[in-house]
Design a protein around this nucleic acid. Structure first.
Length: 350
DNA sequence: CAATCGCTTCACT
DNA sequence: CTAACGAGTGAAGCGATTG
């Protein structure tokens, strides 16, 4: 029986800030999205456990967080730094020699193979210790027979934990859990399941698989299998980026194409920087305008050839977004490149 | 009729 | 008090279009 180890960094962005500002440890720390010049207009990205105790959580408006504690420590997000820390952690994990999947900036899965539960525990303890010693970052690890179960166990063991769920205990482990705990099931899907009378994974396991498939397609089948102890997910050693985008709230809502244009230029530059860092080309672009009523509109375009040209992205981006800028006031704009390809070994046509 | 396109919806931090 | 607070990143889903 091969085992999967799932690791999730605890309150990652806030922990990164604590690592480089040790003096704030023990205080409530919030990392927020930071629209230029007005942090109160953003929302909380991540916060440490001291802040959570006060009721602060992800996606809460920063203004509201300050109402709960006017003395909290606030940092505007710094993706570049978090990305660097993430890369260091991932490199450390890969050095253990197992097939390793980078799931997100702060999560990874390792296929431990046939080392047994005791071996897996030893490995997990070593990893936790090394990450703390080298980077000062806490993390939580879950271990089970499949990636998704390992992740669920990980979620359950936070913070700074280590949880193992053995195969013989799997059914009992899953039975009472809310369906929303399943990876890929958010509020909307959970509501639909609830409406069908399914609120726990135990009930999901007993549901009619055909009804699930009718309602959710292929995902319905996966849900059914998962609820019954079959985790078909695999630990993949490659991590494919499908798109890279940047979006930002304007300082002030506007109908002025000039303002939108200069923001698009700025965002295009940032997106290309990331594209270059990842050594990719793009073939598709999309732009987005979000209006004051919080609805948004997106425009896409595909090119015939791959490119990495900032000029092209900027000019085409501006052209694409023009029809979205009308007399409706816009509060946020964004640009994204997609249909990506690795640079090496391929010839750029132009 | 399958692949691709253009756009919306959803999940998550 | 369930209205108003409301960022950013990215993938998945899906109907329309096209070769």
């Amino acid at each position: 029986m091969t085992l999967v180890l799932f690791i999730d960094m605890d309150y990652f962005y806030a922990a990164c800030e604590e690592a480089r500002h040790p003096e704030v440890k023990g205080k409530p720390v919030v990392v927020g999205t930071a629209p230029p010049n007005d942090k109160l207009r953003g929302v909380v990205q991540t916060c440490n456990y001291e802040a959570r105790k006060l009721g602060i959580h992800s996606a809460m408006p920063t203004s509201q967080a300050f109402k709960l504690d006017k003395n909290l420590v606030y940092f505007g997000d710094d993706y570049k730094y978090y990305g660097e820390m993430s890369e260091k952690v991932m490199a450390l994990l890969k050095a253990y020699g197992h097939r390793t999947e980078v799931v997100s900036i702060d999560e990874a899965a390792l296929d431990l193979g046939e080392m047994g539960y005791d071996g897996a525990r030893g490995q997990a303890e070593a990893i936790k210790k090394e990450i703390m010693a080298k980077f000062g970052l806490p993390c939580t690890i879950g271990i089970s027979t499949g990636k998704i179960y390992a992740k669920m166990m990980c979620d359950e063991s936070k913070p700074n934990g280590l949880g193992i769920i053995e195969e013989k205990d799997l059914k009992a482990f899953l039975k009472g859990k809310d369906v929303i705990r399943i990876l890929g099931v958010g509020k909307k899907t959970a509501d639909r399941l609830n409406a069908m009378g399914i609120d726990t994974i135990g009930k999901l396991a007993k549901a009619d698989p055909n009804v699930l498939i009718d309602n959710f397609g292929i995902f319905g089948k996966e849900l059914y299998q998962l609820a019954n102890g079959i985790d078909t997910s695999r630990v993949e050693d490659k991590y494919t980026i499908l798109s890279i985008g940047r979006e930002r709230t304007l300082q002030k809502e506007t109908t002025d194409m000039k303002v939108v244009e200069s923001m698009i230029k700025e965002l295009a530059k940032e997106a290309i920087e990331e594209l270059n860092r990842q050594h990719l080309w793009f073939k598709g672009i999309s732009v987005k305008a979000k209006y004051t009523d919080f609805t948004d509109k997106i425009k896409n375009k595909q090119f015939n050839n791959y490119t990495d040209s900032l000029d092209l992205l900027t000019t085409e981006g501006v052209k694409l977004i023009r029809p979205l800028i009308t007399d409706r006031a816009v509060r946020k704009v964004g640009i994204r490149v997609s249909s990506l390809a690795k640079r090496e070994g391929q010839k750029k046509l132009s």
